[in-house]
C-alpha cells in the first residue's frame, strides 16, 4: 500500500521559551491509501493541531511531514495553497460553508480556484452532491439546509477535487445523533469506494467505525491499533 500521509517525529510549540506550549511532542504517523483512521484524545491532547498540520493549514515546529511524497516544510505559501486545493479535502466541525451561496456553488468553489471551466465544474459538483444524496438540494443556500445536510454539502465539497485524503475535524460535533449518523454513513461509503479518510473525534462510537484508531495524549501517540470496525451501516460497500 502506498503511503499518503507520513508524519515523522513532528513537534509543534505555540509561543516561545518558558511560556511555550508543546501541543505536539514527537508524533510519528503513517497513513496508507484507502485507510480509515480515527484520531482520538481528550481536549488539549493535540488533535486539532495535528489536523491543522496534516491539512497544511499550519507548519510543524520541528520534524517532517510528507504529503503524498512531498515534503510540506519545503513548500512556499503559494505551493501550500495549491497542495490544500489539490490533495486535501476538509470537513470542519462548524461546516464552514460560504453563507448566502447555493450548495452547488459551495461545492464548485475548490474547482473554481483550481481554474476549471464552469460547465465541467458544475458537472463534477453535481456528481459529488449526488454522492452524498443531496443532488435535489443543489440550489438551496446553507441556511435552508439542516445541520446534517450542510455537513454533507461540506463533504461533497471536500470530495469534489478527488483529494488524496479527506480530513474531518469533529465532523459530528455540531450534529444530533441522527444527523451525525447520516454524515458518518457517507464516510463509510466513501471509504468503501477507496477514499482515504482521517477523522478526528472524541466520541467513542465515531472512533469505533474506523479500521485504525490512534490515541493522543499530551501531544504524544499513546496507542495505535488496527480494529474491527463496528457500527457501520448496512449499505456499506454499495458504492464499490
Amino acid at each position: 500500500m502506498r503511503t499518503v500521509l507520513d508524519v515523522r517525529d513532528v513537534t509543534k510549540v505555540y509561543g516561545h521559551g518558558d511560556t511555550g506550549v508543546r501541543a505536539l511532542d514527537g508524533v510519528s504517523l503513517e497513513v496508507a491509501r484507502g485507510e480509515y483512521l480515527a484520531v482520538m484524545g481528550p481536549s488539549g491532547s493535540g488533535k486539532s493541531t495535528l489536523m491543522n498540520i496534516l491539512g497544511c493549514l499550519d507548519l510543524p515546529t520541528t520534524g517532517t511531514y510528507l504529503l503524498d511524497g512531498v515534503d510540506v516544510g519545503s513548500l512556499s505559501d503559494e505551493q501550500l495553497t495549491l497542495a490544500r486545493n489539490r490533495l486535501i479535502g476538509f470537513v470542519f466541525q462548524a461546516f464552514n460553508l460560504i453563507p448566502r451561496t447555493s450548495a452547488v456553488a459551495n461545492v464548485e468553489l475548490p474547482l473554481a480556484y483550481s481554474g476549471m471551466k464552469a460547465a465541467e465544474r458544475r458537472r463534477r459538483a453535481m456528481f459529488s452532491l449526488d454522492l452524498v444524496g443531496l443532488a435535489d438540494r443543489a440550489e438551496h443556500e446553507p441556511d435552508q439546509l439542516s445541520g446534517g445536510q450542510q455537513q454533507r454539502v461540506a463533504v461533497a465539497r471536500a470530495l469534489v477535487t478527488e483529494p488524496a485524503v479527506l480530513l474531518a475535524d469533529e465532523p459530528t460535533g455540531n450534529l444530533d445523533s441522527h444527523a451525525g449518523e447520516e454524515v458518518l454513513s457517507v464516510f463509510d461509503d466513501l471509504n468503501a469506494a477507496g477514499h482515504t479518510i482521517v477523522i478526528i473525534t472524541h466520541e467513542d462510537e465515531v472512533g469505533a467505525r474506523a479500521d485504525r484508531l490512534v490515541k493522543l495524549f499530551d501531544g504524544r501517540v499513546i496507542s495505535d491499533s488496527r480494529q474491527e470496525p463496528a457500527g457501520r451501516h448496512a449499505a456499506s460497500g454499495a458504492l464499490k
Partner: peptide, 13 residues
C-alpha cells in the same frame, strides 16, 4: 472567516 474558508479550499491570496 469566509476568507479563512476560501484559503483552506485553496484560494490564492
Amino acid at each position: 472567516r469566509e476568507i479563512g474558508i476560501r484559503k483552506a479550499l485553496g484560494a490564492p491570496r
